[in-house]
Design a protein around this nucleic acid. Structure first.
Lengths: 189, 189
DNA sequence: GTCTATAGTGCGATAGAC
DNA sequence: GTCTATCGCACTATAGAC
């Protein structure tokens, strides 16, 4: 075999290591490629830009959300559908991933450009969930409202999930946050 | 006088014109600088990067949100505070700005990198509103939840405000969307 | 794989305002 | 004289074109 398999994975691992030690800006695409034993050109064949290497493997998160939407019972309210999507998405972050997620989050936290990309990805997921809701007959602006709200809950729950000392499962945290949202909005002033 | 005043404004106007006709990627920082009668280096003294030129003048939007938060009555619920912030922010987009907002939005719509920046700005505002809520005694995760929800409502309302044929004021649209959110979440399944 | 345009930074020089 | 905006040039890294 001419190349080692799993080049994207190796690039991601190398990138994570280098970003964590040296910082994102202080690491060039060439550095990452070298560490993974390929050329800079190869790095850019796998990732459209330097930031994208941190998002490898996240494609299936969207699928998880969408599967949750489509598999919700026909009688479910928009909010119930979103809750189902949230639950489905949460199962894509089992406890084994927590350590990786923490390292990754700390890298992103220290770089605005990476935060932009992360928010954009999440925003895209929300937009697709909104589309899926519309396909289930939910009208606008309810569809976008529900999808964005779900994205917000997910984001908050995820941030809690990776906090030091936190051991609960993501799905449980998400359910808690979701309940708090309902209290917040439904509660009388 | 050696330099014309208002260099940032002129750069923004030139950029808007060029981006709208030629496209964002097809316009170099040098092109914009030339059109505004300065050098490329001067462009970068006013804006940290090429995208930032589209966000000049938006600094005060954050202030509007924050003013809304702090000026809400002491007895207001988190959601009522957010509604006040929303109303305050809406007043920063009088009808005269609609045309500019439409041009700007159409440029951003056609470029992912600009969408990232836009989302990041909005996300920053939400984060600061959350901080302001915390300073008013709202606990987490309610503060972040309320702030993010407000940001979502604003975003949806703004998108509607700039739609062709839409003539209502932003504040009215925002109030509508806000009401829909309450229905969506409080409604029984 | 190589070649190149462009983004973005660092720094010294200059020109006017005060 | 100081302060600030501009210029001009050299430079690296990204990312796309060939």
């Amino acid at each position: 075999m001419r190349w080692e398999p799993g080049t994207p994975r190796r690039l991601q691992e190398a990138a994570l290591r280098l970003f964590a030690t040296r910082g994102f800006e202080q690491t060039t695409a060439g550095d990452i490629a070298d560490a993974a034993g390929v050329t800079e050109r190869t790095f850019y064949r796998h990732f459209t830009d330097k930031r994208e290497v941190l998002f490898f493997g996240q494609e299936s998160l969207l699928d998880a959300f969408l599967t949750g939407v489509t598999s919700a019972p026909a009688a479910a309210s928009p909010l119930e559908i979103v809750a189902a999507a949230l639950h489905s998405a949460a199962s894509f972050f089992p406890d084994e991933r927590r350590s990786f997620a923490r390292t990754r989050a700390s890298i992103i936290e220290h770089n605005p450009a990476l935060q932009e990309r992360e928010q954009h990805k999440l925003s895209n997921i929300a937009a697709q969930v909104a589309t899926a809701l519309r396909e289930r007959g939910v009208a606008e602006p309810a569809a976008t409202l529900a999808a964005q709200t779900g994205s917000t809950v997910f984001h908050i729950a995820f941030a809690q999930w990776i906090k030091p000392g936190e051991h609960r499962e993501l799905a449980d945290i998400a359910a808690d946050v979701f309940a708090q949202l309902e209290t917040l909005i439904s509660a009388p002033a």
